[in-house]
Amino acid sequence: MAGHARVGEAAGPYDLADLATTAEELANSHLDLGSILVPVVEGGQVSVEMSVDNQPEAVYLLTPVGRITVAAYAAPKTPGQWREIVLELGDSIRAEGAEAITENGHWGREVFTDVPGDETHRFIGVDGPRWMVRCVASGPRETAGHLAQLARAVLAESVVRRGSDPFPPREPLPLILPDVLAEQVKMAQRQLGEEDQLAIDELPPEAYDAGPAVRPAARPVDETPTGPISRGTAMQRLRNRR
């Protein structure tokens, strides 16, 4: 049974089961990625990172002030998973020699790091009913404040489609590309795969004009901030995405 909440009230991230907003309305304002529906950012683009077995690993919203990714994970019925991850995330960042600053944000604790000579990264998490949403905002130091505001606005309008399938805590919920986006990714991958005819670094700019950027991963990369299936520290995983 639908609830009474509506997107557009900046009261999210929402659970799809609690929304009175119709599927048609969501289709006009959000990018449906299966387990998570994210609002379309005006003036932004979409970048898809694929694994070596051609599965979507991450979807980034590229904006003039930086990139934002929102992902949904399974969580226990009892909230508190994000609080645990914040502590582990801070330890992981400090182990890389960077400073991890814990700040109080709209939903609770956020983790911010400013890597010298690099870019800033802000981690925002929210616990929901049997799910957790994690948002990462990365960009230049000079746009960090604006990017943080934009990331919170995106998160406040995101919608989680948890489903009833069982998943262990911290397991990423399935990421599914919409048909149009999936077809654009396949086209870009075919162009990238023509290595014997055209070197990847010589691809003409128009190859990406009509669709999203595609960044194939050199190996499967797990975006989960912590947990038994994570590969590498938090900062290593972020560096792998540039």
Rank of each mutant, 00 (worst) to 15 (best):
I200C: 10
P76L: 07
A100D: 05
R152M: 03
G125Q: 04
W82K: 01
Y14F: 09
G139H: 06
A148I: 01
E24L: 09
E88D: 07
A5I: 03
I229T: 13
Y14M: 01
W107V: 00
E195W: 13
V115F: 06
Q149V: 08
E206S: 09
V65E: 13
R134K: 10
R83C: 14
L181Q: 07
M50D: 00
A153C: 13
Y208E: 00
Y208S: 11
A199T: 13
S230I: 04
D209S: 10
P228V: 10
T21Y: 02
F112E: 14
G117Q: 04
A182N: 12
R83N: 15
L181G: 11
W107I: 01
P168G: 10
L33G: 01
S230M: 07
G105N: 08
E9F: 12
D222G: 06
V136A: 01
A27I: 06
T63R: 03
Q191N: 13
Y73C: 00
P172C: 09
Q184R: 08
P64I: 11
I176G: 01
E57L: 14
F123V: 01
Q236A: 10
Q81I: 14
T22I: 03
R237P: 10
R190D: 07
L33Q: 09
A151Y: 01
V65C: 10
W131Y: 08
P116R: 13
R94D: 11
M50W: 05
P172M: 11
E142G: 08
P174Y: 14
D201G: 04
T233F: 07
P204Q: 06
L87S: 12
D32Q: 03
T69V: 09
V115C: 03
L87A: 15
H106A: 12
D179E: 12
E110R: 02
L150K: 00
E96T: 07
L62R: 12
A98M: 12
S29C: 04
P169T: 14
G193K: 14
R130I: 08
D15S: 15
R94S: 12
A23T: 09
S29P: 05
L198M: 09
P76F: 09
D32R: 01
P216Q: 08
L181R: 01
W131Q: 04
G108E: 08
A199Y: 09
N28R: 15
P56K: 03
G97R: 03
A75K: 00
V160P: 01
Q197W: 12
Q81R: 13
D127M: 03
E110P: 01
G12H: 04
A58R: 13
H30V: 00
R152T: 11
L181S: 07
